[in-house]
Each structure stands twice: as C-alpha cells, then as structure tokens.
C-alpha cells in the first residue's frame, strides 16, 4: 500500500471542509485533483502535509507503513511527503542554501545516511538548479524574498528535486505562472517522474495537465470526490466546466 485515504473528514475552526474523501494512489501514478473554488482542494493538500490548523475528525490516511495522521509535518517530510505550496513563504535572512542544506541533512539523518558537507551539497544543488534554469545566485538569496511568482514556484520545484520525495503534492503550483514558467515547472516535474514516485496535482486548469499528463483525474466538490476518470476527464472539464457534474451529483 502506497497511499490510501479513507473517509477523510477535516475541519478548520468550526467549518467542516472535507466530508469523506476516499483516494488510493499507487507508486508511480499521477493523480490530478480539480474542482471549483472552495471545494476543499487546498485543505486536502494541507491535511496531507500535516498543517496544524486543520482538525481531522474522521477517517484515516495510510502512507507506506505509516499512519500519516499520527505524524508531525517534519516527520512526514522526512518520510518522503512533499508539498509544493500555492503561496511559497518568504523567510527573510535565511538563505536558500542554509535552508536546503539543513532540510536535506534532516532527511538524510532520518534515512540513516551521513550528512552532506557544504561542498557536496552545493555541487548537487547547482546541478539541480541548472536543470530548472535557475541562476546560481538564487542559492545565496533569502528564501523566496523578492522572488517573482514564477521564481517562487521554481524554487519549490528545486526543493522537490533536492529532497527526492516519494509523494509530491502540488497545490495549485500553476497559479500565477506565465507560459514559459509553466513549461519550466512542468519539465521539472516530468524529470522527477518515476515508477516509485507519485504525484497529487491540485489545479484549476488543464494547462499544467497538458504538460504533465496525469493517469487519473478526480473532481472535488463540497469536500467529496464526485467523479473520477482518466486524462479525458480534464479535457471534458475544460470544455464544459464543473456545472453539469455538480448538477448531476446534487440530483442524486
């Protein structure tokens, strides 16, 4: 079992947002989650990554051999869960280099691997940055401070490339990207695809999916998955919107 979400209910403050999500992801699969605003897409990403503001009041998430909900965000990250943020956070005064060096060594420690020294780390980082068409200067700059929207998203993909997670959750990574940035981000993601690594791609639009070609597409509405299908479902949504699916769901 790679990832199995069963009957997941979650609320923030007093508002129930997820109302029974069921989702099974196998190694190497790419799942897209689509849906109108307020359907719970970002909440699902946050709950998977372990954000504390959300309270899970029913359901279960199994990830590999772990009860994911019992783990803190940092333990999840160390076990291979990665969240690419809708809004990557700025951290003044902390360089990308120090941040990623610390993060990578935290993960290596969890895996029982020796720490990478600064020299080896830098070599590795510069290699990955090159592929993402990032300037080496970005390594010295404070995390996301003064970065454009595209640079921030690229920086998140860079972190993903460095940490080589098993499960990548991408929370509207495509929002705010121009066409070139979208291509670079999508290429970065495609370069990381493998038989062992799975993706959950949360998005509003088909354009990212055109580049990434998901195996499965799920429509989230009112805290539930109301329809699942293949890539053709995304194309159908692009043409017809969500309304017909919502109406069909609400009639039942």
């Amino acid at each position: 079992m790679f990832l199995n979400i069963e009957n997941l209910h979650a609320q923030v403050e007093d508002k129930t947002i997820l109302k029974g999500i069921n989702l099974r992801v196998n190694p190497g699969e790419v799942h897209a989650i689509m849906g109108p605003n307020g359907s719970g897409k970002s909440t699902l990403s946050s709950v998977l990554a372990g954000r504390e503001d959300y309270e899970v009041n029913a359901g279960e998430i199994r990830f590999l051999d772990h009860d994911l909900l019992e783990m803190d965000a940092d333990e999840r990250a160390q076990q291979g869960v990665f969240l690419a943020f809708q809004y990557p956070v700025e951290i003044p005064g902390v360089s990308n280099k120090l941040f990623m060096h610390t993060a990578l060594n935290a993960k290596r420690a969890a895996e029982g691997l020796p720490a990478l020294d600064m020299f080896d780390f830098e070599q590795l980082a510069l290699e990955k940055m090159k592929r993402l068409e990032m300037s080496p200067i970005m390594l010295e700059r404070s995390v996301n401070v003064g970065f454009s929207g595209g640079e921030k998203k690229r920086n998140d993909i860079f972190q993903m490339a460095m940490l080589e997670p098993k499960l990548c959750i991408m929370d509207e990574t495509d929002s705010g990207l121009d066409i070139d940035a979208l291509r670079i981000v999508a290429n970065g993601v495609n370069a990381l695809r493998s038989n062992e690594r799975s993706f959950i791609v949360v998005t509003h639009y088909q354009r990212l999916l055109d580049h990434i070609k998901p195996d499965f597409v799920h429509v989230l509405y009112d805290g539930k998955i109301i329809k699942s299908g293949g890539f053709e479902l995304a194309q159908e949504l692009e043409e017809r919107g969500y309304d017909h699916l919502i109406q069909a769901y609400e009639k039942v």
């Binding site: 990554a49 372990g50 954000r51 504390e52 803190d72 965000a73 940092d74 999840r76 990250a77 160390q78 990665f82 969240l83 943020f85 990557p88 956070v89 951290i91 902390v94 120090l98 941040f99 990623m100 610390t102 993060a103 935290a106 993960k107 969890a110 972190q159 940490l163």
Partner: peptide
C-alpha cells in the same frame, strides 16, 4: 514560516531557531 520549514523536514525547534 514554521510550517513551510517543517514541510521540508526541519523540526519545529530547528525551524524556530532558524
């Protein structure tokens, strides 16, 4: 900020220190 750092594998303590 703390959640962002934790989501990359830093403990809460490491994140607060940083």
């Amino acid at each position: 900020q703390i959640f962002y750092l934790q989501a990359r594998g830093l403990t809460k303590q490491q994140a607060r220190q940083l």
